[in-house]
Amino acid sequence: MTLHPAIADVLSTLPAPPDSLDPAVLRAIEESQVAPIDERLPLHTVEDTSAHTRVGEVPIRIYTPVEADAFGLLVYFHGGAFFLGSLDTHDHVARNLAVETGLKVISVGYRRAPEAKFPAGLDDCDAVVRWVVELGESLGWDGDTLAIAGDSSGGTFVAAVAATAHDEGFDRITHQVLFYPSLDLDFDVDRYDSLRENAEGYGVETAGLTPFNAFYFDSGADPADPRVSPIKRGDLTGLPPALIVTAEFDPMRDEGELYGARLNEAGVKATVSRYAGANHGFVQNFSWISEFHRAFEETAEFLTRPGE
C-alpha cells in the first residue's frame, strides 16, 4: 500500500528540518499548533492538578469522560523524543482515549530532556502510576482496570514502567498500550528492515533519529540500558497483556513488531496491529482520518476483551 494521500499532502507542505535542533524553538512551534479549548472534544470534566509522588510534584491532567461513581483508569505518557510534547500538545489524544475507552485518563506531564537528567521522566511516569493506586478511591477508581498507554517515546516509557513494576512486585497494571513505540534506541540501520525501507519521505526519517534523541542520550540515557531500549530486556515473562500499534511507513515499525513477537514467545498476550498507509505519529497527527481513529477504538476493544 502507499502512504495515505492526506498524510502525503501534509508532508509535502512541511519545511525542511532545521540544521540545528533548539528545544525551546521546537516546543514553541508545537504549542502554537494546539487547538483552542472551545474546539476540543468535550468531556464531563478536565482537571489540571499535580500528583504528590515519591519523586516530587508531577503535573497531571485528569480526563473524566462521563459522570459516574467509578471508572477504570488509564495513565497516559505523551510522545516527543523525550524532549518535546506536553499535556497540551497531546491533549486531543488523551481526550479521544477517554471518550472511546470510557476510562478516566490521567495524562502525565513528566520532566523532559535536556533540562532533566535520565531517568527523571521515566521516574515521573512510574511514580504517577503508583500514586494512582495509592489514591485510587479518591480518583474514583473501580479497583479493576489500570492501563498504561503512550505514543512513540511515551511507548518507551510504557514498556519500561511495566517492566520496572513487575521487577518490584507491583502487580496492579492490567494492560499496556504502545502506539508506534521507540523500543530500540540503537539506531544502526542494519538492525531492522524498516529503518532502511522507511528511511526518507515519511515525516520521521532514519537519519534524524539519532539527533532527535541526542538530548536524551546527553542527559544520561544509555541505549544499551533496557530502561532506555526495552527490547534489550532479556526476560519478558510476567508482563501485562499488550497492544502494540505500528505504522506501515515508520522507520521504527519493525522493533515494535519484534517486541510484540517476543512478548508472545514469553507467554505474554500481545496483539500487534499494523496500520496500512500510516506513518509515525499518526495517532497524534492524523486521528481525524477515520481509518486511523480506529486506533482509539481498537484500544477500547483491547481493554475490554475477555481474558485480557
Rank of each mutant, 00 (worst) to 15 (best):
V204G: 02
T45L: 12
D171R: 13
V132M: 03
L14Q: 15
E200A: 13
R294C: 01
R227V: 02
S12I: 09
D69C: 06
I106S: 01
G277C: 12
H92C: 00
D69W: 05
F118S: 01
T45R: 15
P15C: 13
L73D: 01
L195Q: 02
L87E: 07
E308D: 05
A266V: 09
E39Q: 15
L3M: 15
L146S: 05
L97D: 07
A24M: 10
E248Q: 15
D48N: 15
D171L: 10
F157G: 00
E134Q: 14
S287G: 06
L195K: 03
I7H: 12
A165W: 01
D254K: 11
T304L: 07
V245R: 04
D123W: 07
V161Q: 05
P240R: 03
R27Y: 04
R233N: 01
S152C: 11
G80S: 09
V204A: 14
F217D: 02
H280V: 12
T45D: 14
Y63L: 02
E291R: 09
K104P: 00
L243S: 07
S229R: 00
L135Q: 15
V129A: 14
P306H: 07
E297Y: 10
L195Y: 14
L263T: 11
G109C: 05
M1T: 14
A266R: 04
M252V: 10
V177G: 08
T206I: 03
A113K: 01
V58D: 01
A214K: 09
A162L: 05
F83C: 05
D88A: 15
L26Y: 02
S290M: 03
P36N: 12
P230A: 03
D225R: 10
S138E: 15
Y76F: 15
G234L: 05
A68N: 08
G260N: 07
G143H: 11
N285M: 15
F292E: 07
G203P: 08
D69F: 06
V272T: 13
I106D: 00
T13F: 04
D184G: 02
A51H: 06
F302D: 05
V99H: 12
L239I: 08
E67N: 13
V158Q: 06
F157Q: 06
A94T: 07
G256A: 10
V161C: 05
P17R: 08
V177C: 12
T206D: 06
I7W: 10
P42D: 14
F118G: 01
L103W: 00
R196M: 11
T164E: 12
K232D: 01
E57L: 13
